[in-house]
Computed example of a mutant assay.
Amino acid sequence: MRYEVSEAIPEDAKAIRTTVFVEEQGFHNEFDQTDDASLHIVAYDGDEPVGVCRIFLDGGKTWTLGRLAVLKPYRGQHLGADLVGRAEETARSHGADRLTLHAQERVAGFYRSLGYRDMGIHDQDEGCPHMWMDKPLTDSTGNEPENQAS
C-alpha cells in the first residue's frame, strides 16, 4: 500500500468519498470548505486509489480527522486503521498533541479499538447519529504515549 498526502483535495479522494458517502450511505453534503484547509491522505493499491481521510488544524495543537472512507473490496484488511495511523503521524509531525473526530456511532467501536474515547457529545449529521471522540497524541512530557493503538 502506498500513501500520498496532499494539501489540495485530489480527484482520487473525491471519487472514493463520493462512492462511499454519497452513493453507498446517502449523504448529500459531502464536500465543504474544510476540504480547502485540510491535508488529504489517499491510500493506493498499486495505482488504484482505495482509501482516504482528511485532517485539519482545529485550534491550538488539536487536529481533527474526518471523511475516512475505504472502498468495499478493501474493507476488513486493516486499511482504515492504517489510514488513521498515517493521519496521527501526519498530525503529530505538524505539532498536534490531540486528534478529534466526529464518528458515525455505528463505527465508534472501530475508533475505540484505536484508542479514541467518547467526548460525550452526540448529535446528528444528515440524520445519522454521530459522536465526538478524541485521542491524545502525546503524553504530559510531550512524547508519544506508550502502548498507543495506531
Rank of each mutant, 00 (worst) to 15 (best):
E23V: 04
V22M: 14
G51E: 07
T18P: 02
F27G: 02
V50Q: 03
L101G: 06
P49D: 12
L79V: 07
L83Y: 01
T90R: 01
A91E: 04
G60F: 10
D12H: 14
R92N: 07
E89T: 11
L71H: 07
A15R: 05
V20N: 05
D58P: 03
D36A: 15
H78W: 12
Y74S: 02
A13D: 11
D47R: 11
D32Y: 13
T62G: 03
Y44P: 12
H102Y: 15
C53E: 09
D35L: 15
L79C: 00
R75P: 00
S93K: 06
L57S: 06
E89P: 00
G95R: 07
F21W: 10
L39Q: 12
G26Y: 08
G46E: 13
A91L: 06
I16R: 09
A87I: 01
G46N: 07
D36W: 14
H78E: 15
W63R: 01
T64S: 13
L71R: 01
W63N: 01
A43S: 03
R54L: 12
P73D: 13
H78A: 13
F31Q: 04
Q25E: 09
T90G: 01
L57K: 10
T18M: 09
A37G: 13
E23N: 10
L99I: 03
L57R: 10
V52R: 06
R17M: 06
F56C: 06
H94M: 09
N29E: 13
T100G: 12
H102I: 11
V52S: 12
